[in-house]
Every structure is written in C-alpha cells, then in structure tokens.
Amino acid sequence: MFRRSEQDKRPQVQIFVDGVAVAARQGDTVSAALLASGQDARRSTAVSGAPRLPYCMMGVCFDCLVTIDGVGNRQGCLVPVAEGMQIEIQKGKREIGK
C-alpha cells in the first residue's frame, strides 16, 4: 500500500509484530512502520470485530489502536518505534491486564 522513498536515509530500527521481526526506521510511528511493513496489520473493532487500519494518522480517529510492549489500546500513530519494541495487532477490545 505504501513504500519508502529512496531518499530516506534514516537508520533502521528492528521491531517485532506478533513476534515477527520488521525493519522500521528511526522516527517512524508504530502505525507508519506497520503500514510500510507490507504485513497484515488490520486490527478488529471492539464492537463488531470489523477489520480496520489507521484512518487519520494524527491522533484523532483511534483506528490505529494497538498493543505496544504489553500495553493495549495505544494510539500507534502517536508512538515512535524503538529498538526491540513488541507490537501485537489488537483483536477486539483491550484485555484485562494488558
């Protein structure tokens, strides 16, 4: 859906998406890294389970909700990637203890 422009010379950052290593770039948000990864990053909604991807990328729509380092319901578009970050695609509502 998206690809990186060749001029992007930022250093790579390795993150894990549902346990699979993904190469992100320093300064990417979690959502941008997911959309650039080519992986299926669709979450499912808490209400009907419908699949969704980020819509606004600016912190207002909450369709980028994702579990980051064990914490659910994070807005992936507002969180920068960090080396070794563990991302889980959130299916349905946030679970207790996450």
């Binding site: 998206f2 941008a32 600016m58």
Partner: peptide, 19 residues
C-alpha cells in the same frame, strides 16, 4: 482498511517519506 484521509497520507509522506 485501505481507506484513509489525504492528511494521513501526507503525514506519512512528511514524517517517514512513505508514498
């Protein structure tokens, strides 16, 4: 999934050079 705002695409373009 696959429907986004134009602003979302512009955000990715500016901050991560994604097209």
């Amino acid at each position: 999934p696959g429907v986004m705002t134009a602003g979302a695409a512009q955000t990715m373009l500016k901050s991560s050079a994604l097209v």
